[in-house]
Design a protein around this nucleic acid. Structure first.
Lengths: 193, 193
DNA sequence: ACCTGAACACCGTTCAAGT
DNA sequence: ACCTGAACACCGTTCAAGT
């Protein structure tokens, strides 16, 4: 027996059981399964990681920080989805937003609830502005077009996911979304010189 | 001394210290002053009414019911404001929505968060559809136009109030709102036969 | 460095009891 | 009928202690 601690690589170090990404993934999975943000408690997230609630505080500052992390995750998913699928960029952005909302209905409303000041949000915004300019929108107008179009898409997807249109069927919602995309297209076209 | 209870009008009756409206008003005032929905706890609302938290449960089913009541209050305010001010109906609806959002920034985001199935929401929706039809929108198209336009307005006002546009000044936000209203006008015009 | 145990202030909610 | 006191399960968070 050289040591009572097998994991002792250096002096008094402990094996890292979890990290920030694991915490956020567990929280997101929990929210998705429950379909309800109230289920995401520090205890529940910790339990899913086979750890105590107190252990989380090494990796997230507090619960608000954890929720901000979830928002970052969703923004990242929208960013990676925005360049896939078919149709023009606007159609793809709309589809990406809607798809992420459906995948994470409990967390999605947070996107409209906290300032979009996180790194991932800034990156997505920059990317969208670039795409708008590439499609002929005046550089001076592009940021405003991005703000308004993103607000349109976010508001609609949130409504869909919180059940604001609960008694309407999928076909009606799809038709509504087409009307919304037409309106967004109008905003983009008005930004063209 | 005929009775030890001065307030005893009938057998064992007690003076009604509070009612549902008082509970909702206190909760709304609390949220407005704090600018934060987390401040609205059952204890805090009760304290403001000089009553214990348990007393509230006679007048609201639970906390979710209390929050639904707040939503009703805001929807009512939008409904009464929608026919005042100048400009066309759409401009007024937009201004009314924005004004209510600014008056109640902490509560407003709830409008996008819960199904619009309450009586006040239904009444406002019916009123808006009527106005749209009166302005020449096809009766068959009016409900869809109402849904999309309301979603636009709610999404923008929510963003403004949650600080999603935090680093932009008032003039920029006003300009964004004008662009949004133009888009909404496009949706309305497309509903005309 | 990372995790745990114990502890704290607070939350929503119930139920029997008082008036 | 309406409100209170006591009680319960749960929440987020801290801090000293263990490894």
């Amino acid at each position: 027996m050289v040591s009572t601690c097998r994991w002792q690589t250096r002096r008094m170090a402990r094996p890292r059981l979890i990290d920030r990404a694991a915490v956020l993934d567990a929280a997101l999975a929990l929210a998705d399964e429950a379909g309800d943000l109230a289920t995401v408690t520090m205890s529940a997230v910790a339990r899913r990681l086979a750890v105590t609630a107190m252990a989380l505080y090494r990796h997230v500052a507090d619960k608000a920080d954890l929720l901000d992390g979830l928002v970052e995750l969703l923004v990242g998913e929208i960013a990676t989805a925005v360049d896939t699928g078919d149709g023009d960029p606007l159609t793809r952005y709309g589809a990406a937003t809607r798809a992420v909302a459906r995948r994470h209905p409990a967390v999605f409303p947070l996107l409209l609830q906290r300032p979009a000041a996180t790194p991932a949000a800034g990156a997505l915004r920059d990317h969208l502005v670039e795409r708008l300019v590439a499609s002929g929108v005046a550089p001076a107008a592009a940021p405003q077009v991005e703000r308004v179009v993103s607000t349109l898409l976010l508001g609609f997807a949130t409504s869909e996911v919180t059940g604001r249109f609960a008694h309407h069927d999928a076909a009606t919602l799809d038709a509504d979304h087409r009307v919304l995309l037409d309106a967004a297209r109008g905003v983009v076209d008005r930004g063209r010189p």
